[in-house]
Amino acid sequence: MNSKPYVREVSKTTWFLSHPRYKRYMAREVTCIFIFAYTFLLIAALGALANGQEAFDAFVLGLGGPLGVLFNVVVLIATVYHSLSWFVVTPQAMPIQMGEEFVAGHIIVNAHYGAWAVVSLIILFWGM
């Protein structure tokens, strides 16, 4: 038989535009860039700290300005989105079997929310 299967090409650059679930995936991946950027801010903070009290105070003062606040808000939103998008898939990656049955997925997800809240509260009060 003179068979020549036809191969449909997939765009290497725009494939994710073809379906909402691919866009959602891209949103999860792209938001990690903001977390990456924030680590640079932390390194800069360490640098300022190493330069003494005065440099550090100036750095903190700068952060309180409009640009600093804007940056923090944007990073916070991106980080929350990124983290939540991972929380919801944790039951798939770490199923827990107790006896015969597997623990329901929403319990594992909620445990993550709980742990997140506890850690956040500790940091908040410890910092005060």
Binding site: H19, R21, V89, M94
Partner: peptide
């Protein structure tokens, strides 16, 4: 871990879960 496989699987196999495990 795009997870698309598990979303479309008609038998709820959750292949994405298997791969992460």
């Amino acid at each position: 871990f795009v997870g698309a496989c598990s979303e479309v699987c008609p038998k709820h196999v959750d292949p994405a879960g298997a791969l992460q495990q």
